[in-house]
């Protein structure tokens, strides 16, 4: 969980011959090795493809569909999935596939904004708390404890109450709920690194505090926080869609994923596809995010 994608110091240590320079055995990344790395992880490849597709859909929905997500055809109300409408149509005859594709931009925007808020505020708090110590740390971490004590959804709902509904408001609400997690991980990492022998050695070498922070503490503490950030992307997708499902996202015609799923609940008996396929899209995206995050967390280092 410590360093993402670096070589694991302990992996070969036990089997190394004494006295032999270990450098010779260090992994050398050549093409064939890389190819084998990917071939052995079809799930990871698939996950990256899913992420790439969602990113493309968010920026250039035209690549995937040329239908209008907002215009319905009264003659084609609640059509099941088929060659003409891949995901079927909704109660107004709008093409569901087009709505899901165009919804990607809204969902992605909210998600990225939410994670950015959580990451910047949270790791900032954690960094200051961990590095400053003393009463600063006490005050900041008590604050984080409080944020942690209130369930994330309630915190988000409180922010939505204050700010009103809308995509950006939902994003901020989800972001605030994620601050505490980042602050805790960042502080724990900073504390861990601060107490290592190599940081003490740097101090002993006469390095000043900003050099210690910039050259040793930050680079070594950031890994797990970045892993958390990718993991939080998945959590944020779910949280954003939950709030939008509850009706606090962008107002109706906008094709937000959560709202789409909510829209399909009245037709569960007759038109299964509306909620099912949209929800499946969300689930696949989150699954892909988690897979990539797991890869960052340790697969590159051969752990787990």
């Amino acid at each position: 969980m410590t360093e993402a994608l670096t070589t694991d110091p302990s992996a070969g240590a036990g089997l190394r011959r004494p006295g032999e320079p270990a450098g010779r055995a260090a992994p050398r990344r050549d093409g064939r090795r890389l190819l084998r790395f990917w071939l052995r992880r079809p799930g990871l490849v698939l996950a990256l493809l899913v992420l790439a597709a969602v990113l493309l859909a968010a920026f250039w929905p035209g690549l995937f569909t040329d239908r209008d997500p907002l215009r319905g055809a009264p003659a084609e109300i609640l059509r099941p999935p088929g060659a003409r409408h891949w995901f079927g149509t909704d109660e107004l005859g709008r093409d569901l596939y087009a709505r899901v594709v165009h919804g990607a931009a809204l969902s992605l925007k909210a998600t990225v904004l939410a994670v950015a808020v959580a990451f910047l505020m949270g790791s900032g708090l954690g960094l200051v708390a961990g590095f400053a110590g003393g009463w600063v740390e006490t005050v900041l971490m008590r604050l984080v404890d409080v944020l942690l004590a209130v369930p994330g959804l309630f915190l988000s709902l409180a922010v939505v109450t204050a700010l009103g509904r809308g995509t950006v408001q939902v994003a901020l609400a989800v972001g605030v709920a994620g601050v505490a997690g980042f602050a805790r991980v960042m502080r724990a990492e900073v504390l861990r690194v601060r107490h290592t022998a190599y940081v003490e050695a740097a101090r002993l070498s006469g390095a000043r505090w900003y050099a210690v922070l910039g050259r040793h503490v930050l680079p070594n503490a950031l890994g797990p926080v970045l892993v958390l950030a990718t993991l939080d992307l998945g959590t944020a997708v779910l949280a954003v869609s939950s709030l939008s499902f509850l009706g606090f996202g962008a107002p109706p015609p906008a094709p937000e994923w959560g709202a789409l799923i909510a829209g399909g609940r009245d037709y569960l008996a007759d038109a299964w596809w509306v909620s099912t396929l949209t929800g499946l899209t969300v689930a696949v995206l989150v699954l892909a995010v988690h897979r990539v995050s797991r890869a960052l967390d340790g697969e590159g280092t051969g752990r787990r």
Binding site: G258, I261, T276, G279, L287
Partner: peptide, 28 residues
């Protein structure tokens, strides 16, 4: 890791769809 990727509200809707509407075992 699959379970954590499923939106909770969606799981509920799927359960309703299958176990109340398709096979009416439980009230929705």
């Amino acid at each position: 890791s699959v379970g954590i990727s499923l939106p909770a509200f969606w799981v509920g809707l799927m359960l309703i769809q299958v176990l109340s509407f398709r096979v009416p075992l439980f009230p929705a």
